[in-house]
Design a protein around this nucleic acid. Structure first.
Length: 577
RNA sequence: UACCCGAUGGUGUAACGGUAGCACAACAGAUUUUGGUUCUGUUUGUCCAGGUUCGAAUCCUGGUCGGGUAACCA
C-alpha cells in the first residue's frame, strides 16, 4: 500500500499541508491496514426527508462526499425514510437540489424504503434466533418498565413468548391485522443494561400510514436504530458518519450487524455545527416558518441552504467554510463572521463591481455644463482584469450616500463636508460649496463644484483627497428595492435565555430593512436573477430570484464589506445609521 | 442521578511522550481612485490537583466544567 497523502516536497514548498481530521486519520489507517479487504471507501449522506437542509447539513455533505472524493471512494445519497408520517416528496426534491447545489454528485441514490423487504426478512431471522419478540403493551407501559438511569428496567410479561407465537404475531402485524400501537417488535437484549438504548429497544412499529414511496404496501415500519446500520451494511458503507447524539446508539448499531452477521459497517460520530446568531435545529427552523416569523424556508435570513442561496451565498463559499471549520468531537460554536468571511473571500475575486446609493443625498454640480452627460470608464473588477470595464454616465445632478456627508465632520471622517474636496469614483473631484436644508433642518442637497481637469478621478496636480465616494447620476439612475439583512438573532447564543423564556424573543426585529428606493447605476437594470455584485463600498448584493422582474431587479444584501470606519464608530460608542 | 463523550488563545483546529503550530478575529503599520482587497508585524492558549517519566497538551488517578442518551422520531 502506498502512502495516501504525498508530503510536500522541497520543490513545491508552497503546498500547505492541512492536518488530517480525526475521521481522515481513521480512514487512512483503515486503508493502510486494508481493514475492508480492498473495498473502496464508501460513505453516505442520509437525510430524513422531513425538512429542508441547512448549513449544518452542508458540513456533513462536505465531510461525506469530500471523504469519498479524497480517497477515491463513493458516496451515496440515501433518504432515511422510515417514518411515513413526517416525510414528503417535497423534501426529497429540495434535498437533492441542495446537495447538487453545494457541489456534489452522489454515486448511488437510495432510500431506506428500498430495503424494507430485506429488513423485514432480517427481523424474522432475529425472531427465529430468539433475539427479538413481539410486545403487546402500550408505549406508556413500556416507558415505565424501561426504568431509569439508576434503576434497572423490568421485563414485559410478553418477553418470553415462543418463537412460533412471535413469528405469527409479527406476520400478522405485517398483514395489517392490528391497529397502530397494538404491538411492536422488540430486540431481546437486557433490561439491566446501563445504556438505556439497549433495554430491549423497539425495532418495528405499526403505522397505517401512506408512505411517499412504498404507498400502502407496508403498515409496519422499522425504527431508525434497526434500519440505519443494516442499510449501511447493504450498501457496503465502510465509514458511517453521523453526529454526536447518535454516539450511544452505536452499541445497538453494532448489535444488529453482529447478530445478523452482515457486512460490518462502522459508525463514527462528529460534532454537529453550531453557529452564532442563528438556530440550526429542524424543529426551530420549522417553528420560524410555520409561525410566519420569516417568509419561508428560503427566506434569506434562514440558515437553510435554499435561504443562503437566495441570500447570495455561493457553493464555493459554503465549501470553503466547511473546510475551514474542521471536523472534531468537541461541541463547538462557530462565529457567524466565518461564514460571512468565506463569502467575501469568494465574491471579492469574482463579483463585478457596480455603484448603488442606498440612502440618496442629492448633489448638484453647479459648474457642470447644463444638459451634458459624460460617459466614464469604470473598471468592472479590480481583482480580475479579464472582467473588463463599462461606461457610467455623469451629469450635473447626482446622488451620493447620506452617510458620506457630515456637516460637522470629526477629524477621522474623510468624506464630504462643507468646503471639503473628495473624489467621485472614476469621475471627478468635487468640492462641497453649499449645504441646502429643508424647513426642519435636514440636509437635502449639496451644491458642489467639480474640477474639469480631474476627469476619471485623477488628481491633475497630484493633490491628495482622502476619500473616494460612490455615486449615481440622478437622471440615469434606476430606482429599485434593496433588502438589507442582518443576523437572525440579536444575541450570539439564542438558547441563552432565562428559564421559561422563549428563544424566539431573541429574534432580531431588525433582521430585514427594506430600502424601497435605492438608486442604482443604469448598467444594473439588466442584472440577471441570482447574479452577484459588489456595490462599491457597501457590500455584496444579489438579484433576488423570486421577486425581481425583468428590467426591475430587486437586490438582497448578501454581506457587507468589512468596514473599519463603521467599526471604529461603534467602538467609539457612536451608532451608525 | 446512571452510562457515554469531550475540554488547547476571542473563535475554531493541529501537535499521537521531545521547540505548543495554523487559520479567522483583534491590534499596529505599508499599499490603495472601494475606510474594500493585498502585504508585513504584534498580542493572546494546554480546565484543576496529584502521579509516571530525563521529559507530559499527550500516559495514569481523582476532581471541575460542558455536551449527549433515557420517543412506537431521526
Amino acid at each position: 500500500m502506498s502512502a495516501p497523502e504525498p508530503t510536500p516536497s522541497a520543490d513545491n514548498p508552497s503546498t500547505p499541508e492541512r492536518s488530517l481530521n480525526f475521521i481522515e486519520q481513521i480512514v487512512e489507517e483503515d486503508l493502510r491496514t486494508n481493514r475492508n479487504g480492498g473495498l473502496p471507501v464508501q460513505t453516505r449522506f442520509p437525510p430524513e426527508p422531513n425538512g429542508y437542509l441547512h448549513i449544518g447539513h452542508a458540513k456533513s455533505i462536505c465531510l461525506n462526499f469530500g471523504l469519498a472524493k479524497k480517497y477515491g471512494g463513493k458516496c451515496n445519497l440515501r433518504f432515511d425514510d422510515t417514518n411515513p408520517t413526517t416525510e414528503e416528496t417535497e423534501y426529497v426534491d429540495s434535498i437533492q437540489e441542495d446537495v447538487r447545489w453545494v457541489g456534489f454528485n452522489w454515486d448511488g441514490l437510495y432510500y431506506a424504503s428500498d430495503y424494507f423487504e430485506q429488513l423485514y426478512q432480517w427481523a424474522e431471522q432475529l425472531i427465529q434466533e430468539n433475539l427479538a419478540y413481539v410486545d403487546s403493551q402500550s408505549a406508556d407501559e413500556m416507558a415505565k418498565q424501561r426504568g431509569s438511569a439508576t434503576v434497572a428496567g423490568i421485563e414485559t410479561p410478553f418477553r418470553n413468548r415462543s418463537v412460533e407465537e412471535n413469528l405469527d404475531l409479527f406476520r400478522r402485524m405485517k398483514a395489517g391485522e392490528f391497529p397502530d400501537g397494538a404491538h411492536v417488535l422488540r430486540a431481546k437484549i437486557d433490561l439491566a443494561e446501563t445504556h438505556l438504548i439497549m433495554r430491549d429497544p423497539v425495532l418495528y412499529r405499526i403505522r397505517h400510514a401512506h408512505h411517499h414511496r412504498t404507498g400502502d404496501k407496508w403498515c409496519i415500519y422499522p425504527m431508525y436504530d434497526y434500519a440505519h446500520g443494516q442499510c449501511d451494511s447493504i450498501e457496503k458503507v465502510t465509514h458511517s458518519i453521523c453526529t454526536l447524539e447518535f454516539e450511544t446508539h452505536r452499541r445497538l448499531y453494532d448489535w444488529c450487524i453482529e447478530n445478523l452477521r452482515i457486512f460490518p459497517s462502522r459508525q463514527y460520530e462528529f460534532a454537529r455545527l453550531n453557529l452564532t446568531y442563528t438556530v440550526l435545529s429542524k424543529r426551530r427552523l420549522l417553528e420560524l416558518v410555520k409561525g410566519n416569523h420569516l417568509a419561508g424556508w428560503d427566506d434569506p435570513r434562514m440558515p437553510t441552504l435554499c435561504g443562503l442561496r437566495r441570500r447570495g451565498y455561493t457553493p464555493e463559499a459554503i465549501r470553503a467554510f466547511c473546510d475551514r471549520i474542521g471536523v472534531a468531537r468537541f461541541n463547538s460554536t462557530i462565529e457567524m463572521s466565518w461564514l460571512e468571511d468565506a463569502l467575501r473571500d469568494d465574491l471579492n475575486k469574482r463579483a463585478p463591481r457596480a455603484m448603488a446609493v442606498l440612502k440618496p443625498l442629492k448633489v448638484v454640480v453647479t459648474n457642470w455644463p447644463a444638459g451634458e452627460v459624460d460617459w466614464l470608464d469604470a473598471v468592472n473588477n479590480p481583482e480580475d482584469a479579464s472582467a473588463g470595464s463599462r461606461k457610467v454616465p455623469f451629469s450635473g445632478t447626482l446622488y451620493v450616500e447620506q452617510d458620506d456627508f457630515m456637516e460637522n465632520p470629526p477629524k477621522q471622517f474623510f468624506r464630504l463636508g462643507p468646503g471639503r474636496e473628495v473624489r467621485l469614483r472614476y469621475a471627478y473631484l468635487i468640492t462641497c460649496q453649499e449645504v441646502v436644508k429643508d424647513a426642519s433642518g435636514n440636509v437635502v442637497e449639496l451644491r458642489c463644484t467639480y474640477d474639469p481637469a480631474s476627469r476619471g478621478g485623477n488628481s491633475p496636480d497630484g493633490r491628495k483627497v482622502k476619500a473616494t465616494l460612490h455615486w449615481v447620476s440622478a437622471e440615469h439612475a434606476i430606482a429599485t428595492e434593496v433588502r438589507l439583512y442582518d443576523h437572525l438573532c440579536r444575541q450570539p447564543n439564542p438558547n441563552d435565555v432565562p428559564e421559561g423564556v422563549d428563544w424566539k424573543t431573541t429574534i432580531n426585529p431588525n433582521s430585514l430593512e427594506v430600502v424601497p428606493q435605492a438608486m442604482l447605476e443604469p448598467s444594473l437594470a439588466q442584472a440577471a436573477p441570482g447574479s452577484q455584485w459588489q456595490f462599491e463600498r457597501l457590500g455584496y448584493f444579489c438579484v433576488d430570484s423570486v421577486d425581481s422582474k425583468p428590467g426591475q431587479p430587486i437586490f438582497n444584501r448578501s454581506v457587507t464589506l468589512r468596514d473599519s470606519w463603521a467599526k471604529a464608530q461603534q467602538k467609539a460608542g457612536g451608532q451608525r445609521s
